[in-house]
Structure formats: structure tokens, C-alpha cells
Write a protein that binds this DNA or RNA. Sequence first.
DNA 1: AATTAAATGCAACAATGTTGCGTTTCTGAC
DNA 2: GTCAGAAACGCAACATTGTTGCATTTAATT
Lengths: 136, 136
Amino acid sequence: MTSVEEILQQHNLKNTRIRQAVLSLLIDADEGLSHQDLSKSLDMDFDRVTLFRTLHAFEESGILHKIIDPNGTAKYAYTLPDKDKNKHSHAHFICLNCGQVVCLDETFLLNEIKVPKGFIKQTIDVQVKGICVKCN
Amino acid sequence: MTSVEEILQQHNLKNTRIRQAVLSLLIDADEGLSHQDLSKSLDMDFDRVTLFRTLHAFEESGILHKIIDPNGTAKYAYTLPDKDKNKHSHAHFICLNCGQVVCLDETFLLNEIKVPKGFIKQTIDVQVKGICVKCN
DNA sequence: AATTAAATGCAACAATGTTGCGTTTCTGAC
DNA sequence: GTCAGAAACGCAACATTGTTGCATTTAATT
């Protein structure tokens, strides 16, 4: 029952038209959306720089998380509030046909990965690539 | 004892100056190198498009593998011939300070990851982020 | 309604990567 | 060695993604 306005307020972000629109889209989407995806979906006038800054603000506040797709372009997905982001990280599935990015439930323990001496682990990103159900 | 020339020949790639230079650099490097990294390291004249195409050719033939770093830029690393690339994939460590990308020994079984019904898994990419030994 | 910090719009720029096309060069056959 | 064809290269032009600086507007608070 947390409204878009409430989420913005909770993160000390001003309630503006573009932020409402972007956040609504991403909460409803079942996949990660790129800057380009959002530009096309938003039926309003806005500057492209503003959208970049909106996405940065959301990422920094933890509302969204960024996934870099195999082309190197950023996609953003809504971060469910109950995710434990300290020790676990969920994986992402990336369709090699349509490029769709979806969050998977699977999580990974950072402890289980071995790195050379002197290296400090902080986060882990897992991308599973293949063919999604729509393209199958 | 496999020379650079032999590797090129084995993959049906013509033996040119830039290919020799790029491959030598990447075999000796203990980290993934970007187009920019290579441009700076190569002490010869060449067109940037040629370098892009060289890297594509190497990737397609399996000599190199591509890692997309957190900025979305591609880095390339030499693929050791003995890696089993069908069911396993090795992880990469990415330094959040200097951006260095190194291949880890750790491998992952694709079978162990659960995806929704109708999805087909093909490959897995794992990136561990943190601080490398040089920056520590 | 006035204040002010935050957010926006605009212009300009930088980096990465791609495509088309004419020219050069490698390689294998003669 | 040289000839021919295919592969690779160089150049120009372009597309996309992302960033920075600065003036203007707007949201939230008094």
C-alpha cells in the first residue's frame, strides 16, 4: 500500500511529475528498463538529462538497482523493500534474443566465492543468459 | 609453446601486425583490457575501427572473452585453452577503485541456478566487486 | 505569499561502438 | 616470384549512451 508519493517522501526526494511517472512504470514492470525504454514509455515532455538524473537519484537512494546488460547499457529495476542487500544478492536473467532483463529469486552468498589474497569482496553480480519464456 | 602466429593460424585468422600486437599484450596481461587500454599500450599506428574489429574477431573465435565492466565498457581477456566453456564459467573480480578486471579460478555450474518455467539457461556470468590487492 | 534548496531544461561535450566503401595486404595456387 | 581472390584495413560519417555547467523553474516549508 506504499504509494509512489510515499516512497519518494521516505527517501527525501521531491515529488515531481517525471519521478512519479518513472517510478510507477518501474514498479509495474516485471523487467528492467533502460533509459531508452523509459523514454519511449513516458508520454510526457522531459529532457533526457533529467531522466538520467532521475535514475541516478533513484539508484543512489536504493529505490532502483542498476543492471548492465551485455551491450553495456544500463537497465534499472525496482528494488523490493524486503531484500537483504548486505550479504546476498539476487541474480538476473538476460534474454539473448529480446534483451529482456528479469530479477531472479536465487540469491548468492558472497562468502562462498574465493578471491586471491589481499582482495576484498564487497558485492556479487550474477547474470544468467539464455532464452526467456516469451522468445521460447 | 603456442606462439601468437600459431594461435591466429589455428583460428583461421590472417597474421597481421595489429593482431599479433593485441594478442601478445592480452596473453601477457593478467587483467582484462579495454579498447582504450589497448590503444594506449600499442605503440603503432592503427585505426580505432580496426581495433574494434580485431577484438570482435578474437571474441568470435573464442581466443578472447568479453567482460562488461560496471561502467558498461567492454574489457577483453585471453581465454585459456583448457577452460571448459560448456557447463562452467569462471568468475571475474572487478576493483571498484581502479577498475581492474581479473579472471578468478572459481567456476559455476549452470545447473545449480533456478530460473522460471519456460526459460532456457545458456551461460552464466559472475562478477565479484570489491577492492583489489594493489588498491588495498 | 516569500524563501530556498532541489530539480529541471538547454547546450555542449566525451566515450564507445557501428556501418559503408574504397584500398591495401595476406595467403595459397601457379 | 607473381598472380588472384578473399580478408583485413583506413577513413569518414554516424548512432547511442552518458556527463557537465549553468541559468531557470518548481516543490516544500515558513
